[in-house]
Design a binder for these strands. Structure first.
Lengths: 347, 347
DNA sequence: TTGTAGGCGTTATCAC
DNA sequence: GTGATAACGCCTACAA
């Protein structure tokens, strides 16, 4: 905006005494003109302070920009606070060609605002764990922007990368049940984008608007019978700590907790210590994701592993292929496995 | 690119039987036309599948886009792997108006590639810890894009947010010296963007190309006399672990380590355990940043605290003010303080 | 090898 | 209130 009037293609063309087309060619198709002319053009451009073709104008003319928009379900903050999400984004960014930049869309209360999506210069969008009815999704489709969804219900015409979350959660629950635990608590993600936290009712579960939460919950409930459940507003350790404090003071006290992320489980670990409970002696803990923190924990966390790196990489690959005009294929589903470490033990 | 030809302002105008200007007004200046006409325009637009003004064309016409480009000195990965950087970006993103998106520029070997910078749709750039001679910086200036630098030498015409890093490092070193330690090792960041790791020579220190590393090193060396120094290629725990293993097997063995980040210090903590050394009994550890992990560590880390949140917020505020046409003022310098916890003790 | 002409989709300035 | 008309800065057949 405050950028003063700068020289344009036309300025250079006039100065050199050639047409704009020739100057454009000097930058985009060096083989279309003599080396000497090109030389002359580039040098007078430099003398004039012309910095090369304007990116926005170029995009308008070519009808393509180069940015991959990543739309998140939570505040942009979460991208950096949540290790699991970080790994996915990391891998996604790594996979994108160096030519394509990553446009991080600020998400508030259920995803990026419709208006933000409308204004963004994006060639393709990657939606990560938005609520099912996010306005951003509708807007992206309205705009006709190719879409990749991750951890979300597939949309007609969109590419999808999915994770076997229900099976993964079932693995976690089965594991503790197999160890003899009968009183098992559940530490869950947000069910809806309303920042509520506390014990959860069945009604609220059935109306959940996040696919991941829904799937993992379904996995747990396929094994556990009416367990106490605490819903956290976010994925921070302190949230886990708070929820676990509630769960571990129920009567009868749960002897095992299954948690929807490693961060929540680490918070639960802290809560157990707060309460003087030993892990896994008094209470067994199972996380989800298998982030680095799970391995570094004391005791190291039993957890459900998903390949977060592959998740990000595949999302990027799908985005690039859509950009290249490919039709979206069937969903790519990544497996989950149980990693047994020291935070779980027999009842 | 594969986006098929979609209806434009003109399509709608023709359909409704008004001029393009009026349709434009319907979207941008509702008060410039009758409610009924606007109504009619919007509804036929919807019927036609027109999604509203094209963002790129709009930007061209208005000469402003809305994206804040964040250029990082390391691979984009670092943005998500390094907690300290995460906090800064988090805060930066939070501060940006919801209208402005954040364009993360992939950095390879010393920052984003000149070409990437040339193609990106950016209104203002924030450079974070790039090497002094990064090509991206030159390109940004050539383009006449307003610039905010963070943890980097000021450039003429750029706004700057700075941290008292030299003083902070000196605090860390003084602290362990005051505790009686004489053999103190240094665990340092990369001095240059060449991915080298290992013991460091004086020559390499004097030719360092990262301001932050240089400043912190200067702070340590203002207190310590020719300490053993290990340079890591990145800021990951494993890097710290590797370096500390080397440092802690020197003869005489250091009784204290000062580290350029909490992550490195946590890696050192692990290395100490590996070697059967107790902290702080056998070796004292000082980190840098005061991230959450430092508090959660066992023992909690003594560290140099900087206000990472303020750093990101101020960077964003400066970027916005430049966007609004403000002239860059003098650098904003943030203080550093020592936080004493349990990882340091008397010799 | 170089130039011409016609887009790309909006916004802004004035008249009417 | 509404409508011409001229930018905005570049790309790309196609003609020369």
């Amino acid at each position: 905006m405050a950028r003063e009037r700068r020289p344009t293609l036309d300025t250079v063309a006039r100065e050199v005494g050639v047409s704009r087309a020739t100057v454009s060619n000097a930058y985009n198709r060096p083989d279309q003109l003599s080396a000497s002319l090109r030389e002359r053009i580039i040098s007078t451009a430099a003398a004039l302070g012309y910095a090369g073709p304007d990116p926005v104008a170029r995009s308008l003319a070519k009808r393509s920009g180069g940015a991959v928009a990543v739309m998140l379900g939570h505040r942009l903050s979460a991208a950096f606070s949540d290790p699991a999400l970080s790994i996915v984004l990391d891998s996604l960014a790594d996979t994108l060609d160096v030519e394509r930049s990553m446009l991080l869309m600020p998400g508030v209360e259920g995803g990026p605002r419709r208006e933000s999506v409308g204004r963004a210069h994006m060639d393709v969008a990657v939606a990560y764990s938005l609520p099912d009815d996010a306005a951003a999704l509708a807007e992206v489709r309205r705009r006709g922007v190719p879409l990749v969804v991750v951890d979300q219900p597939a949309l007609p015409g969109s590419a999808m990368v999915d994770v076997a979350d229900r099976a993964g959660a079932a693995l976690a629950a089965s594991h503790v049940v197999a160890l003899g635990h009968r009183e098992v608590g559940v530490l869950a993600f947000a069910l809806s984008p309303d920042d509520r936290s506390g014990p959860v009712s069945a009604a609220r579960i059935s109306s959940s608007r996040y696919r991941v939460t829904r799937e993992r919950m379904a996995g747990y409930l396929s094994v556990l019978d009416d367990p106490p459940i605490w819903e956290t507003p976010g994925c921070l350790r302190d949230h886990g700590r708070e929820g676990a404090r509630w769960l571990l003071t129920r009567v009868p006290r749960p002897t095992a907790l299954v948690c929807m992320s490693d961060e929540l489980a680490l918070g639960a670990l802290r809560a157990a210590h707060d309460l003087g409970l030993s892990v896994p002696g008094d209470v067994s803990l199972v996380g989800y994701d298998d982030t680095q923190a799970a391995q570094w924990a004391d005791p190291p966390l039993t957890t459900v592993r998903q390949d977060l790196t592959a998740k990000g990489r595949i999302a990027a690959e799908l985005a690039i292929s859509l950009l290249d005009g490919a039709r979206p294929g069937p969903a790519r589903t990544l497996p989950t496995t149980l990693v047994e470490r020291a935070s779980t033990g027999p009842r």
